[in-house]
Design a protein around this nucleic acid. Structure first.
Length: 462
RNA sequence: GGCUGGGUAGCAAAGCGGUUAUGCAGGGGCCUGCAAAGCCUUUUAGACCGGUUCGACUCCGGUCCCAGCCUCCA
């Protein structure tokens, strides 16, 4: 049975959806004013794995991941760039979709945008104002009154008095309490705005997720996730808004993905130590990036470095090497399950709070078994290969043709390489090993490794 | 200061109160003209100090160190 670590209870809990036929999951997506970095990649990849796994266990899963396409940083960036908000956000939404594709990420079922959800946002703020939980300040901004919500802090384990004591000096005296947060923000002249009962303005960041999640998944749904840095204050505020407005539990299971670190430090926009996905894709293919992300458990820190990325590349190359040339039959999977328990253990690993490092280690066990069986029972090796590809598919890896993966990124043409191989094999047959080795070294200088076997000579990229 | 996590072999990364994690790297071997790949074998662990236990890397307490949140951030 699937167990998920719930940030609310800080324990692993058996997962049972509100409706056993239909799981609802909401993930906080991107604020689209820049390219996605590796931290975003991790959240994107992990929730891709999570939803793939959920879809194998439940008849229907609705995966909602929002796009924040209006906020202060977007306005600022658009002015800096001298482009319109729409131009800016559309450009980066497109870039995000390209990055996702490169990482093998399946699109969410619904991808709502804040600017297209204004009615839901108005309705929610209105409810909160009517209930006296929200109020309009002198400036016209509408705030959420945190003291009116008794459970404030239950997700992040904070309480209002501690927060108050540690709070930095808040210059806004417009708020009743320094910890109150904005639901509706009045527009300055020239700023984009929407008409509302409180005046022309735009929504605060937190309210959009409350409004969009309820709109698509109902007031009470199964899973809500995002990066670890969103748990406070973003998710805390979402709980306050949604439960304050709807008088029912908001989310059963909260999931938070750990940070990507650089030199033991969080990768973040503010520190400026981030690498964009497309930057990294110049040196490593998307599948290697994906493998790198899966090689550590989603709640642990993931240290970003060339050495770790190289390691990932070697590892996935090893997996592809073992299935190279096999026909990947799926016919005799029964035989495999009778003889070996790989698939059970693989599923059990993912059921245990999505333990991808364990799942991957099982992939390597299969890979090794394939290499052994190749010499003895080629049909069984093919069946195992089929299993490896199928299980890999549940993680979104190993879906490429092994030949393509192992030969990608090479500069020379196939014809040139084949000619060199012929030349070398001629030299070998004449026992001219000096020439033979020279040709091999030339090819290696182009990043090509030759492998001689009884069937002939094959090659792969370094 | 308050609140979270975490410290595992050369590197990365898991599970587990007693039995091989796994990948890369290193040593030895098989195979090869030589390699590569693969297979066999092998060396490096559990921050520190106590406690519980027949037995702890695994449970409990303390110490030290690291990271994160408390301000926008995935």
């Amino acid at each position: 049975m699937l167990q998920i670590f719930n940030t609310l209870s800080k324990t692993k809990e058996p997962f049972s959806p509100i409706n056993s036929e239909h799981v609802g999951i909401y993930v906080c997506g991107m604020t689209v004013y820049d390219f996605c970095h590796m931290g975003h990649a991790r959240v994107l990849v992990m929730f891709d794995i999570i939803t793939r796994h959920l879809r194998r266990q439940f008849p229907k899963v609705t995966y909602v991941r929002n796009i924040t396409d209006i906020d202060d940083k977007i306005i600022k960036r658009a002015i800096e760039n001298g482009e319109s908000i729409d131009q800016l956000t559309n450009r980066f939404i497109e870039a995000m979709h390209e990055d996702e594709k490169a990482l093998g990420i399946l699109p969410p079922d619904i991808e709502p945008r804040a600017t297209e959800s204004m009615n839901e946002i108005f309705y929610m703020i209105e409810t909160l104002v009517e209930k006296g939980i929200a109020y309009q300040g002198k400036s016209g901004d509408v705030y959420y009154s945190v003291r009116k919500f008794p459970n404030y802090g239950k997700l992040s384990g904070k309480n209002l008095d501690d927060l108050e004591a540690g709070a930095r000096v808040d210059v806004e005296d417009d708020k009743d309490d320094p910890l109150d947060f904005v639901l509706w923000k009045m527009a300055k002249p020239e700023e984009p705005s929407w008409e509302s009962p409180w005046g022309d303005g735009r929504p605060g960041w937190h309210i959009e997720c409350s409004a969009m999640s309820s709109n698509h998944l109902g007031n009470h749904f199964d899973i809500h996730g995002g990066g670890m840095d969103l748990s406070f204050p973003h998710h805390e505020n979402e709980i306050a808004q949604s439960e304050g407005a709807h008088d029912c539990k908001f989310v059963n299971t909260w999931m938070h993905v750990g940070f990507v670190n650089v030199n033991e430090e969080k990768m973040s926009k503010s520190l400026g130590n981030f690498f964009t996905i497309r930057e990294v894709l110049e040196s490593y293919d998307g599948e290697t990036l994906r493998y790198f992300i899966l090689s550590s458990h989603y709640r642990s820190p993931l240290n970003f470095s060339d050495a770790n990325l190289d390691n990932a590349k070697n590892a996935i190359t090893k997996l592809y090497t073992s299935i190279r040339g096999l026909k990947s039959s799926t016919a005799s999977t029964d035989e495999i399950s009778q003889r070996l328990d790989y698939e059970q253990r693989f599923d059990a690993a993912l059921d245990d709070d999505f333990n991808t490092p364990i799942a991957i280690s099982i992939l390597f066990e299969i890979s090794k078994q394939i290499n052994l069986e190749k010499e003895k029972d080629i049909d069984f090796a093919s069946a195992l290969s089929g299993l490896l590809v199928r299980l890999g598919g549940y993680l979104g890896i190993l879906q490429n043709n092994p030949e393509d993966f192992l030969k990608q990124g090479v500069q020379l043409s196939d014809e040139e390489i084949d000619q060199k191989i012929k030349d070398r094999n001629l030299a070998r047959s004449e026992k001219d090993f000096a020439l033979s080795d020279q040709i091999r070294n030339e090819l290696e200088a182009h990043g090509i490794i030759l492998e001689d076997s009884a069937e002939g000579t094959s090659w792969r990229r370094k």
